[in-house]
């Protein structure tokens, strides 16, 4: 038996909206410690990982580990039927072929349940090593969204370089070139509006803007995003989901021939 209850459906709605275009389907691995997901995009250029911790839920019960194959487009259709403020409960019997989603309105005068058919998805599980990054940059997620959107109008790839001057995003295309630099800035009173650059050594990497833009679909989840960069390694773009956990996007760099 698996049962997980969240006080606000909005969180799950936003999570699925952030994932569904990048990864059409994937396995929700449930265990007593929470729900996790690892899925690659169809071209195997990026990897999405999701971790939702058991203690971040209002109620969490998982008697045995299960892998639930989910089509995110279909899950999104069901979640559109939930109000943002609804309480949401996910339920499945052991070895079930369906996941039940129950929505309750705040004053409990409306209760609905939807069953989502589960799929059998074979997925290769990748081991992601823990490591120290050359540069870790925390910035407002809306700023990240704006930068990658603005640069997409100029080019297809972006050179991200972190130095003691700041983090610079550069692109070029048929119409010209663009550079946007963000400096370490702890002036704003609100921590959410600050930019923190933690630099161990300068690093510069090139990435496809299309994917970085896609990651920005997670912006509504949280006001800050963290970028982690190391030479010749995938960039990590991380959005924390309150006390519940986080979603991380790993994007392989472009490598000079």
């Amino acid at each position: 038996m698996f049962e997980a209850r969240l006080p606000q459906a909005a969180v799950l709605k936003k999570l699925v909206e952030a994932l569904k275009e990048l990864v059409t389907e994937g396995n929700f691995d449930v265990s007593p410690s929470g729900i996790s997901l690892q899925a690659m995009d169809s071209s195997h250029v990026c990897l999405v990982t999701l971790q939702l911790n058991d203690d971040g839920f209002e109620h969490f019960r998982c008697d045995r580990n299960m892998s639930m194959g989910i089509h995110f487009g279909n899950l999104s259709k069901i979640l559109k039927c939930a109000g943002n403020e609804d309480t949401i409960t996910l339920k499945a019997e052991d070895n079930a072929d369906q996941l039940t989603l129950m929505f309750e309105s705040a004053n409990q005068d409306r209760i609905s349940d939807f069953d989502l058919k589960l799929m059998s998805i074979e997925s290769e599980h990748l081991g992601i090593p823990d490591q120290d990054y050359s540069a870790e940059v925390k910035m407002p997620s809306a700023e990240y969204q704006r930068i990658v959107r603005d640069l997409t109008s100029m080019g297809d790839t972006v050179l991200v370089s972190a130095t003691k001057e700041g983090i610079k995003f550069s692109t070029s295309g048929d119409i010209g070139t663009a550079n946007i630099t963000l400096r370490h800035n702890t002036t704003p009173e609100k921590e959410d509006e600050q930019t923190h650059i933690d630099l161990k050594e300068p690093v510069a990497l090139t990435f496809a803007l299309r994917y970085l833009n896609n990651f920005a679909k997670a912006t509504p989840l949280t006001p800050q995003v963290k970028l982690s960069l190391t030479k010749d390694l995938p960039v990590v773009v991380e959005y924390k989901v309150g006390e519940l956990g986080q979603v991380r996007f790993f994007l392989a760099p472009k490598i000079d021939d």
Partner: peptide, 14 residues
Amino acid sequence: KSTQAKISAFFGAG
């Protein structure tokens, strides 16, 4: 000219 790397080139089977 640059080539897009695959993510599996960086992370092993786990």
